[in-house]
């Protein structure tokens, strides 16, 4: 799987997680919403390739 695909998939899952977080926390400001969405997107994107590599190594 290409690196960009892994990053993208991680980002989409992070976006979903961020949206669930926003729905639960209900921040009062736009900035609050943005930070709660962008942090999971950034973290999941960054972790995507690393987690995929871990599973690939286990599979081998």
């Amino acid at each position: 799987m290409g690196l960009m695909l892994k990053l993208g998939l991680g980002g989409v899952l992070g976006l979903l997680l961020g949206l669930v977080l926003v729905a639960w926390v209900r921040p009062a400001t736009d900035g609050g919403m943005a930070i709660l969405v962008l942090i999971p997107v950034a973290v999941c994107s960054a972790l995507g390739p690393a987690v995929a590599a871990l599973f690939q190594r286990k599979g081998e």
Partner: peptide, 20 residues
């Protein structure tokens, strides 16, 4: 926990947007 996250996000969110 929810209230703490909301207060944190609301405190730093606007600064974060300005940074972006």
């Amino acid at each position: 926990l929810r209230v703490k996250i909301r207060r944190w996000a609301d405190s730093y969110g606007d600064g974060f947007l300005k940074l972006l």
